[in-house]
């Protein structure tokens, strides 16, 4: 029994993606195909802008920086994604929001969910509700998930925050 358990843990440690970078690359390849160029950089949000967005979205950024991903195909920009953490009950939830050039959300994904309960916020069907939203959209209403109220509202505010940040990016070095 112990032998089987050890073998299971050892093999699964190799098979299952666990690193955040590795998971994001998998998400990108699933959405945009294998032939895209992927680049990412840490982007320090200007303090005044950070405060303004946090006040509007009623949620703080996890730190002074977010990670910006650029997805290109033959040097044409297909999408920009922003990754941040939002707090669940006690643990940070790492999520990434993909934007088209028109500022509308292409998709939203939970990269790493660390809480014991409420993992259903990772479901594709729940995250679908963000597709097409932009800075003019209503972020006051969000689909509920039983036992995951805090995570649901936290991700909703987090996505709103990234939408507000995205529209400022075109004017910054982060876009290039």
């Amino acid at each position: 029994m112990l032998k089987l358990f050890v073998i299971f843990i050892f093999i699964s440690n190799i098979i299952f993606a666990d690193g955040i970078e590795q998971k994001v690359k998998e998400i990108i390849k699933n959405q945009f195909g294998n032939n895209v160029q992927i680049d990412f950089k840490k982007y320090k949000i200007p303090p005044d802008l950070k405060r303004e967005i946090e006040n509007k979205a009623r949620q703080k950024f996890f730190s002074e920086s977010v990670i910006i991903w650029l997805i290109k195909e033959k040097d044409t920009l297909l999408a920009v994604a922003i990754m941040d953490n939002a707090y669940g009950k006690a643990q940070p939830i790492t999520f990434i929001t993909f934007f088209g050039e028109n500022g509308k959300i292409l998709s939203n994904h939970i990269v790493k969910y660390r809480e014991e309960h409420g993992g259903a916020v990772s479901n594709y069907n729940w995250n679908k509700q963000f597709i097409g939203k932009d800075e003019k959209s209503d972020f006051n209403k969000v689909d509920a998930i039983s036992g995951a109220t805090i995570s649901v509202n936290s991700i909703n505010k987090g996505v709103h925050k990234l939408v507000l940040l995205y529209k400022t990016l075109k004017r910054t070095e982060a876009w290039k």
Binding site: V6, F10, G19, N85
Partner: peptide, 24 residues
């Protein structure tokens, strides 16, 4: 077997820099 199990549990890869120890 226990040694292999212990090694499996150790983080062998450096984590992507996106986590800070925090109290809540």
């Amino acid at each position: 077997l226990i040694l292999i199990l212990a090694i499996s549990f150790v983080d062998s890869k450096a984590q992507f820099d996106f986590f800070e120890s925090k109290a809540t």
